[in-house]
Amino acid sequence: MVYALIAFGYNLTFSTSKTINFSLGNILMLGGVVGFSLYVDKNTGALLGIPFIVPIIGVLIAGVIVGAGVHKFAVQPSLKLKSEYTWVLATLAVGIILKNGVEQLWSTGDFKFPSPLGDNPIRFDNGVGIYPQEILIAIVSILIVVGVEVFKRKTIFGKAIQAVSEDRDTASLMGIPQQFVIRLSFMLSATIATVAGLLVAPLTFVSASMGTALGIKAYAVAIIGGLESGSGLLVGGLILGICEGLTAGYISSGYKEMPGFILLIIVILIKPNGLFGKKSIKKV
């Protein structure tokens, strides 16, 4: 589900600006680190005794700031250049800067993040277990995706975002400030990433490298589900998660990372728009 969330973040900026923020994986990591620092004492691993709402607010603020920063300092200047794909490198660079920055200033180690819901899995009769945190991730992910989609369909500001993604010049003719809408989409997607970081932290470990593989696999999900389709991303995320689980369970956990990329290649070969990619309707 976290894959789906990050993929959804890719989808948001891609729809408004036709660019993808490739630093999203490391922004997720930043969310994990910020949340951890506000909640747990790094040296002892004990809780700081701060209510969990503080790290939540912390990662929200971090997401907004980083998102705006990525757009202002990496994407916007790249788009002004003549060469077409500078933004790919620029956002990748932001990701590397974030990762190395955290390694330098914070730590290179792995830290355990105790889940506020408890670390004991809920066991079913047949021995299958699920962590409460995993249920929380699923619920929050669906709420975020549904919430953003409803916002885009029902409010005038959401419609303006869609207008910018469809036709930027015409959106300007309606008086819609396109640069602002694009920056907002970056802020929103980065915030989703930092929230996702806080969500997965109790399941993985908190470390400077926690976001790297996640970011790439989420990109695979985005391609599998269709970059332009919100619901496709949720399904794509589920497909990848299930494939990884099955591979780890039945073959070997060493091959866990493989199915995502095999799927990616198959989808690109057979259906380049993604499983749920929209065909564009256009009349001239």
């Binding site: 303006a160 869609q162 015409t170 003719l173 309606m174 008086g175 819609i176 564009s280 309707i281 256009k282």
Partner: peptide, 28 residues
């Protein structure tokens, strides 16, 4: 200043009513 562009440029993926609402974007 309202500009009704050449080749129409309606927002094809949104409904007619949404298109009209967007025309009034600045009045919200």
């Amino acid at each position: 200043l309202a500009h009704c562009p050449e080749a129409r440029h309606v927002f094809a993926q949104q409904t007619i009513e949404d298109n009209l609402h967007l025309g009034a974007y600045l009045r919200y």
